[in-house]
Design a binder for these strands. Structure first.
Lengths: 220, 220
DNA sequence: AAGATAACTTATCGACGTTAAGTTAACGGC
DNA sequence: GCCGTTAACTTAACGTCGATAAGTTATCTT
């Protein structure tokens, strides 16, 4: 009697249904990565949870790293969704920028383990850690590019804000970089050290958002 | 004929000179960690470079992790030194804070690999990644506490600045946290992605310093 | 019924961190 | 000068890891 999981379905798949096995593997891998981290999640543990032998995973993934990359893309897809929502519903440039930062932070706080795995590199290979800030020129067909799309969106928001009359202290791309650096610093600190005696969590969040906006938007 | 290194010294140590072997191991481990990262640096590679067998390392270190922690403390010692220098030579509060941030950044850019290993967790165990932001209450006698001392110093600088009349937007500890978050965001971005088409490196550095100071120091 | 082949398993590889147990060489005391 | 003690090592081995090779089973097509 093996471990229960939403991923396990029992016996051998019928022909042409291998893709469902692939999804089961991803589900089990995600559970284990979040429960135990990257290193402790072994190929054999994933296989056990799915209910197949370890080498069976290599029918669906090139290696362990590709499983992680697939999960990263999946998770970042959710962040991109909430960004879309903001762009639709918020028009005022300042609010957009602030809510964009808030969405990024909310995403991090809502998925702390994924964020840790992706941005804080909990023992993941270098290629996985780069998913969150991949170069724009990278091949968009390979897995792990959703992370860079998020940054591109921030640049777009700032460019549009500038076009609609907002004065920035620096070029839009510089401002986007400064904004991301600040929000990432905040998110990583709160996530990595939830037990740290932070002075005041809400004060930090609003302080950082104020700091970023003050830093990139010209005083009027 | 084994690989050359500043660490290798040839034959067996005389009695009572085991501590020199310990330093050779640290030197070799540092070289290899920086050249190849944590995971790729195996016990056997370190031992080869030193010129001893792999188990010999366990005479001087409990495990691989303790080697890394010892190196972290050593490296952070250098940052603490430069902080001391600033506190001695710079009196004006604003300058002190700015130079403190600059020193942190300079440290990161000068030792990008150490910074990566310590703060960006290049596959190091969790305990090592925590060295850079360990809780103040942790046992100060165990290895890996130098990192937290740096943060304590920043708080002190801000408290003294406040005492000497500077007005802060938030309590000193909150300001210290915001400052660290910003500088860490900057450092990690520049270090982790040196090949990224950053808009302008100097602009980013000065932009972040301005942003942080504007964010924590009340307008006059 | 008979291939063809998707979906698997068993066996195995080399490398890893680490431990156990044995060996060698340098020293103080006689 | 030899001797016991013990610091400073070595060789051998264990269990686990990610990954591969080669063989097996079951489902589908014809």
């Amino acid at each position: 009697m093996s471990a229960f999981s939403t991923a396990a379905t029992g016996g051998r798949k019928k022909r042409g249904e291998g893709h469902t096995r692939r999804e089961e593997i991803l589900q089990a891998a995600k559970e284990l990565f979040l429960e135990q981290g990257y290193d402790s999640t072994t190929i054999r543990k994933i296989a056990d949870r799915v209910g197949v032998s370890a080498p069976a995973l290599y029918l669906y993934f090139q290696d362990k790293e590709q499983m992680m990359l697939a999960l990263c893309d999946q998770t970042f897809g959710h962040l991109i969704d909430s960004i879309d929502e903001i762009e639709k519903s918020v028009a005022e440039p300042r609010d957009r920028i602030r809510q964009f930062g808030e969405a990024y932070l909310r995403f991090g706080l809502k998925h702390p383990d994924e964020y840790r795995l992706i941005f804080l590199g909990s023992n993941v290979p270098e290629s996985v850690r780069k998913v969150g800030h991949r170069m724009p020129t990278d091949d968009p067909t390979r897995p792990g590019v959703n992370g860079s799309i998020v940054f591109q969106r921030l640049v777009s928001v700032l460019v549009e804000a500038e076009a609609s009359g907002l004065k920035l202290n620096y070029p839009a791309d510089t401002c986007a970089e400064l904004c991301w650096m600040g929000m990432h610093g905040l998110a990583s600190a709160l996530i990595l050290k939830p037990e740290f005696p932070w002075s005041n969590r809400d004060l930090l969040i609003n302080g950082m958002l104020d700091m970023v906006l003050k830093g990139i938007i010209r005083d009027t």
